[in-house]
Amino acid sequence: MIALETLPLPVGTSLVPGGVQHLSLRLERGGTLWVTGPAEAGKTALLDTIALRRPATGGMMTLLNHAAGPGLSARGRRQLQQRIGYIEAAPLFMDRLTLADNIALPLELNHLRRADVKRETDSIIRWFGLESHAQLLPHSLSQTMRMRAACARALITQPSIVLVDEPALTLCPVLRDHLLSTLRGLARNGTTTLLAMQHQPEGTDPDDQLLTLPRLPPSPEVSISSASGNDLAAPLILSPRDERLLP
C-alpha cells in the first residue's frame, strides 16, 4: 500500500510556477498506477521519492503501512528499500561483478542460502533471456541488455512495490511486453506497481489507475497550455527573423 498526503514534488517551472507541486494519492496492495505527464512533470521525482532515494521534505508518506516521511531512520529506510524494486532510467551496476552476481545481489543482501540464491538467480535470468550474458561484466553489454538485467535485479526478490521508469517501457517493445506481463502476474500476488510514461500505452488493463502530472495548484490562471504553449518569449539570442523557429 502506498499513501501520499500533500507530498511536495519538484516540477519544471515552465509547467508550474514556483517549481513545486503537492501530491496526494492512495494506492492499495496489488494496484497498478500509470503516472503520465510531459517531461519535467515530476514522474521520476515521484518514483525516486517512493523508492526512498530522494528525501521527502514535507507532507506524509506511508509505504507498506510504515511511515516513510521525514525522520525515517536509516534502518527503516534499508528495510523498506529491500521490499521495493525500482527499474530506474539509468540503472547502476557493480562493474566488477558479473551480470548474474549483480542480479543476485538483492538476495545476497537478504542473507539467503547460497543454493537458494543460485536457484532464484538462474530462474530469473532464464525468464528475462539473459542466459548467454550471465557471466559477462555489465559494461560490456548493450543498453537493452542492461535494462533487462535491471528488471531481473528489481524483481528477483518479488518485491511488494515495483517502480518502473519510462526507459524500461520504451527502449524495446519486446522487453516492455514481457515486463508488463510479469508485473501483472506479480500484481495478482499483491505487488503494488507504479509505471511512469509520458503517455499511457494502448492495451493496458482497464483496472489500472491513472495519475497525470503535474498536479496544478487551484489558481485558475495557471494551466499547462498557458505555461507551455504560445506565450513563450523569444530568447534574447534569437534575432526577430529567427523567431519563426519557435513553436
Partner: peptide
Amino acid sequence: RQQQAVLWRLGGK
C-alpha cells in the same frame, strides 16, 4: 563510489 551507490539503492548496509 559506484559500488556504494548501488548498495545504498538496494537497501544494503
